[in-house]
């Protein structure tokens, strides 16, 4: 009996001690035992402190942009442009967002680099260009930390001068907690340059 009590005392520190706010939410809002995912910042918190998902006030995406015909323009891109970012959101009621950009007519040998990053806590998003090219993790060309709380999709596509292109960001139906976390926030980055 004494041995058992001593063993219990010795192993008292064998259970991990994780304070609230230490971890970002994992896939499908996963968190350490006793903690839940906070919607506004996807950080694991105590259940009493958790708030529902919200897009936040830094969104620069403009609705309605749920079809290619209603795509939000990304204006004023140069042949070699600075990085343009759009902060977007796909709440439960919004399955996809469209953006459109023009390649200046004077460009030669131009490539569009598009990057979509989003928290892995909520439903995964997909990235598409003109209904043909699809963003992939491999195309990002960087070693992403697997547990930094963010998924990144990239797409590099040669574009011709004077052409118009449509970018589609959509919920993929993957990792949506059985419909309980069918939403997400994202950052869409676009840059034109020479390949």
């Amino acid at each position: 009996m004494r041995a058992a009590i001593l063993a219990l005392a010795l192993c008292g520190a064998c259970t991990p001690d994780i304070v609230a706010g230490a971890y970002l939410c994992g896939p499908e809002q996963s968190c350490p035992d006793g903690q839940v995912c906070n919607g506004p910042d996807n950080i694991c918190v105590l259940p009493g402190a958790a708030l529902p998902f919200e897009c936040g006030d830094k969104i620069t995406e403009v609705e309605p942009n749920n079809a290619s015909t209603a795509a939000q323009p990304i204006p004023n891109l140069a042949c070699v442009s600075p990085l343009v970012q759009v902060k977007g959101c796909t709440p439960t009621s919004d399955t996809e967002d469209w953006f459109v950009f023009d390649v200046p007519a004077q460009c030669t040998a131009t490539e569009a680099t598009i990057r979509l990053s989003f928290p892995l806590a909520f439903e995964q998003l997909s990235l598409g260009l003109d209904g043909t090219a699809t963003g992939t993790v491999a195309a990002c060309g960087v070693n992403l930390a697997p547990d930094d709380g963010t998924d990144v999709l990239c797409l590099e596509q040669a574009v011709t001068a004077g052409s118009k292109h449509a970018v589609r960001v959509a919920r993929s139906g993957v990792g949506n907690c059985g419909g309980e976390c069918g939403f997400n926030r994202y950052t869409l980055s676009l840059q034109l340059g020479t390949p």
Partner: peptide, 20 residues
């Protein structure tokens, strides 16, 4: 194993299946 996941401050890492 316990020390690997224990955290007393913000880690900047997501809670993954490996952590579980």
């Amino acid at each position: 194993a316990s020390d690997d996941v224990a955290a007393d401050s913000y880690t900047g890492q997501a809670w993954t299946r490996e952590d579980e």
